[in-house]
Write a protein that binds this DNA or RNA. Sequence first.
DNA 1: GAACCAGGAGAACGCTCGTTCTCCGTACGT
DNA 2: ACGTACGGAGAACGAGCGTTCTCCTGGTTC
Lengths: 210, 210
Amino acid sequence: MDATRRGRIDGDEARRRVLDAAERLFYTRGIQAVGMDQIRDAAGVSLKRLYQCYPSKDALVEAYLEHRDRRWNDALADHVGRVAEPRERVAAVFAFLAEWFGTADFRGCSFINAFGELGPVSPPVAAAARAHKRVLRERLGTLAAEAGAADPDTLADQLLLLVEGAIVAAAMGTATGPAERAGSAARALLDAATASGPGHTLTSHRRRRG
Amino acid sequence: MDATRRGRIDGDEARRRVLDAAERLFYTRGIQAVGMDQIRDAAGVSLKRLYQCYPSKDALVEAYLEHRDRRWNDALADHVGRVAEPRERVAAVFAFLAEWFGTADFRGCSFINAFGELGPVSPPVAAAARAHKRVLRERLGTLAAEAGAADPDTLADQLLLLVEGAIVAAAMGTATGPAERAGSAARALLDAATASGPGHTLTSHRRRRG
DNA sequence: GAACCAGGAGAACGCTCGTTCTCCGTACGT
DNA sequence: ACGTACGGAGAACGAGCGTTCTCCTGGTTC
């Protein structure tokens, strides 16, 4: 068996194309709104092949969420990893959000959307969404601790609220510049949490009007 | 025609029961997951009557969102209205959230959920969700201005992010005590926004570890 | 009491969609 | 070159669901 053929596509290639198509469609239109036929059309594979790759729509949804989780976490880690200074690493989270919100096909958080859509009906979806957010919460906890917050747990939760809120507001268009607003709020909270705490860094960034 | 009969229920009574049942079911299980038959069963009316009250599922969904919007706004206004001191009125918003999150059937924000589920497919649902959030954003803007924020618009957006984030985190169970965490963050932001602003109230509430 | 009408119960219809099956062409092995 | 087995296209199947229709019961009116 050759590794790749022309005309008839390879198995791995098919899996990749199916997952790509599913991700784009599920994300932009919602999971229940897109049928397997549309995914087949977008992926350019036959229905038989599609079901060889993923035995059911549920399995495909699970793969979609897993893939999204990995890509999103990697992108965030990449953004944060480019910065060394602890306080700026927190800021990098919101810079990442700003960039993400500017994406053409941005439509909120796949996991919040999937949870709202299927959470009560599908335990796997609910679990995937919670797992995704748990990882994010832990990352924020690390950042808060590194930045010298007096109470990293509290700050981590507050940063999480800002991130979630910014994503939702960006998706619905209810706040102007949600990433920047969330970022400045995060900076203020970080200032307050480190000003009198034990890990005071003396690098006092003031906000514009503060 | 008598106002109320036994056995065969009145028209208004039917509308009320249908809307109540729809609200409970749509909210707890999601809109697409609930069929008209289930609403009929829960409301205890005939299918014919159901379609007399609401000519389609779409119309019922719209009525559901309208009703939820009014009830939620009224409850929030009630909570905030009991408090006079401007800074405490902001805090009352998060006290309201705390109470709401403690509700037995709490499952997040109907509008965020509906938007995630049907936003890309149903313009009316998207519009209703945006309208709901716009009202909330305006209320927060008023509260921020009353509290003497130097930049009420920025603070209003940040409070909105905290509220949205708290709701999402509460629904998914990703933060511990989201309402309280959001409330303390709001207090800190309010402090920072009024400390050097023109409308300084001198009522300086300090956070526990601040 | 008889005609009539409103309302209830649920069958029926048509459509969508997830999943499977059938048919056919085509590339590969001997 | 010929049989074979795999893959593609799409029909087919069955379930779910929004919506409508039918039938029947029971009350109201002359």
